[in-house]
Design a protein around this nucleic acid. Sequence first.
DNA 1: TTAGCTTACGAAAATGATTTCGTAATTGAC
DNA 2: GTCAATTACGAAATCATTTTCGTAAGCTAA
Lengths: 344, 344
Amino acid sequence: MKPATLKEIAQKLNISVSTASKALKDYPDVSKKTKALVHELAKTLNYKPNSLAVNLRNKETKTIGLIVPEVVHHFFSSVIKGIISQAEKKGYLVIILQSNESYKLEKKQLNLLMQQRVDGILISLANGTADFMHLNEIVAQDKPLVMFDKIAKLVRCSKVIIDDRKAAYDATQHLIDIGCKKIAHFRGALLPQNSIDRFLGYKKALLDNQMDYDPSLVYICECGDKSFEEGKTNALQLLEDHTDVDGIFINTDLVAIGALTAFQEKGIQVPNDIAVVGFSNWFMSSVISPSLTTINQPGFLMGKTAFKQLYKEIKSKKKNKPIALKEIILQTDLIQRASTTLSS
Amino acid sequence: MKPATLKEIAQKLNISVSTASKALKDYPDVSKKTKALVHELAKTLNYKPNSLAVNLRNKETKTIGLIVPEVVHHFFSSVIKGIISQAEKKGYLVIILQSNESYKLEKKQLNLLMQQRVDGILISLANGTADFMHLNEIVAQDKPLVMFDKIAKLVRCSKVIIDDRKAAYDATQHLIDIGCKKIAHFRGALLPQNSIDRFLGYKKALLDNQMDYDPSLVYICECGDKSFEEGKTNALQLLEDHTDVDGIFINTDLVAIGALTAFQEKGIQVPNDIAVVGFSNWFMSSVISPSLTTINQPGFLMGKTAFKQLYKEIKSKKKNKPIALKEIILQTDLIQRASTTLSS
DNA sequence: TTAGCTTACGAAAATGATTTCGTAATTGAC
DNA sequence: GTCAATTACGAAATCATTTTCGTAAGCTAA
């Protein structure tokens, strides 16, 4: 039961392949009778155009590539959902790859996608990515590329992000507003732009409020698949290093939840002893106890927006129009929950 | 900067396309000198074979399709991770689609994948899927198909599942063992095989222990994207309907967490008033309070296993060998946590 | 010298669909 | 009856690659 081809249809009806093709595509220069015959036979044979052949001719695959650092991750899976739902509307399929936060893998996967001749690429960078040659190559080869969330500022392509600095500023300001005097920060890895920006937002909020910035209050988490454990160990370390901390702004919810767990085990009261703010608004954060104050990061919308921009660029390219690069910044907001709501 | 083709290489070197092709593939009937020239030029032009043309000729795409009901879902994203990590090892790319638990969408997406000429398909069925014509068509067209987790027993294809009935039996038995006398069940939707099996396991455990099976103790959740809310409302309803229930076995962790939240709000003590067992071992379940006893469902392994089976079938088909269909059952185990650990 | 062999290359078919161009047959107008 | 227009179809090129099958040229052995 091999899939039928145009050739077979043509042979059975004693017409040429070109006529069969034109009949199916409703060209005006095919008689109604022939059209009817072709359509009928196509249906009974369950004919579906071989997309490989079509793509080869049209030089497009109607497929895009997506690289994320990690799939089992509330934020990224929301982004994925946003992307594939939007892509489907436009008739695009999505090939998903996971870089495992590895620069090497990311590079290899970009090559794979180029070889596969995807029409465009969406990517959120791995933590390990320090140089951008592999990305610049994509751009140089004129392949539409949109980066989201974890981006490289220096690569000439469109970007969809949040204002990490502002969001972090808001989070820190919130801790200050509820009366915190000594605020720690669990930051992300050193390289990613967003973890840098969140750190800078934290620092600026402190300085704007005439509070000291103390580097020893900043702890680093890789935020890989050990985030929860990192949160715990960092929290325990913090308790040893500083007895008088009364607030923490943490780079990611999962790390924050690790910290909350450690505090619970040590008998530290959250928020009364230490108030905690996370980042991302994972679903989990609303159901744990105490529920976690956090920054809502619109994953689904980010995915949707990133695809839309990529789609525009693919279209432009097809028409040989210049591509207008954009940097789109999505809105975030602070969601206050129990971890910063003092009972007083 | 269009990607280079064999033709261009051939023209620049004044040789034929066939010679260029053979040079790159190291055929014996090309002189070393020519080979060297071709390889060199290919490198400087950054030549990559056009996979569309290659695929058209070889009639394979090195691509598989994956349909899941929902992407933002701890279990399914673990499965996805297992699949794409394994697929990458074998040089396969994965196109991911989300059926949103809709039969109609699932059908449409299967068609899309067939049109795209993927080499094989992995699927976990939507709750809404009641007839299996669309799946039987895939099988009839001789396209390798492996179902996992939410399967249809009647479709002739390989399956990777857990023993849902046994797992549910174990969960219920555990509640009985810790002394529960009246055990409710929040089951999944009516159609999916696994929600049926879990229900049957629950029932069998009751009867094996000479306990009454009371249909009014069984509540239904659709387990879509409103799982958490369903858990809450079901729990509240249960409290109204039956005052003396002391244990619940719940179809999915997320629903169970909704129930826990409702109990907490109503001042019901878990586990002392009501003990709760979930299903799936979402990461969340280990960090909420009280932590949730649950059945560990090995998502990553399931994905890996499903791809391996699909890969075998793809290989067999290519060699025109008969395909040996398999039903692979993965091990589950009960993870006891606070929600069933009585303080006595 | 010629039959047989190796070496190194190219022509061409094949994959399946699309589209341009050409052509035969029919119709209509004058 | 002739020219022009219309209708309905097919041949062939195209996309990029792969692979089979030739076929020259050069060499050796009888």
